[in-house]
Nucleic acid binder design. Structure first.
Length: 249
DNA sequence: AACCAGGACGTGA
DNA sequence: TCACGTCATGGT
């Protein structure tokens, strides 16, 4: 799907997928996002004034993470804990687990379930998420292959399409585009998909209009979240989204 | 005081 | 398949 796009800065018209034009705009506006945040990274990357909220744990421009299996596991836990919850709450839960020295699969497995619930309580849904963390820990301990299949992740209770893609993209560095509620709102508001388009359709829209590139997939999803936090939290602000000017038919 | 946050699952049409 | 209720804390 290609769209003719008016490039306002250069004043010339050229053929470029609108999905790529949006990426350029977001990158210019907010800069590199440096996902997935890792709680042990003590702000060593300085501040990013264009970023909302805490900058803890982000590592913009560094795509070498995760460095260890522990970091890999931390990303996986974060992906589960952040379901329908904001990241600040997830950080509290992860830090609790860290302080208990329990942010490892073996410790999650051996941890008393009530203790585990108490630790992750700030992230909400703690009854479900505690049980599902144990399922994830069990899986992570036993899985053999270097990188899991998407279907394998989806077979685990608590892992749906977005969480599976997040784990693939950020923990295993596989170019699998992540579609979240924000992504859906943005592309729907821009008229690129129907309001109730299926997850796979939105995923395909991005993957078919971008080079299959890990860095682009990682940054694009993070940029969409950053952008949507500003214009897509309340419905009345959808109309103020600056991207609307970029996608004029 | 509602409303929502970087969703997924179980159920019944 | 799909629409809907449920899970739960905490910030605005």
């Amino acid at each position: 799907m290609k769209k003719s796009v008016q490039n306002l800065s250069s004043g010339r018209t050229f053929n470029e997928p609108v999905i790529q034009t949006i990426y350029g705009y977001l990158l210019d506006s907010y800069g590199l996002q440096g996902w997935w945040p890792l709680i042990e990274l003590h702000n060593s990357y300085g501040t990013n004034p264009t970023k909302t909220g805490s900058i803890r744990g982000y590592h913009p421009g560094n795509y070498t993470y995760p460095h260890t299996e522990n970091q890999q596991f931390e990303i996986i836990c974060g992906a589960l804990l952040t379901q329908n919850t904001n990241w600040q709450q997830v950080e509290k839960a992860l830090i609790n687990l860290r302080q208990m020295d329990s942010l490892y699969p073996e410790r999650i497995l051996s941890c008393d379930i009530e203790t585990l619930k108490e630790a992750i309580k700030p992230a909400g849904y703690y009854n479900q998420k505690a049980a599902r963390l144990k399922i994830l820990a069990e899986w992570f301990t036993n899985f053999k292959s270097q990188t899991p299949e998407r279907e394998e992740l989806l077979s685990l209770k608590g892992i749906g399409p977005e969480t599976a893609d997040s784990i693939l993209l950020y923990a295993f560095k596989q170019p699998s585009f992540v579609v979240d509620a924000y992504t859906r709102r943005v592309v729907s508001n821009l008229g690129l998909v129907e309001e109730k388009a299926k997850y796979s359709e939105i995923k395909a829209l991005f993957e078919e209009n971008l080079p299959e590139d890990l860095v682009i997939y990682q940054e694009y999803h993070a940029l969409l979240v950053e952008h949507a936090k500003r214009y897509y939290q309340k419905k009345i602000s959808y109309s103020r989204c600056p991207l609307l000017r970029l996608v004029s038919d």
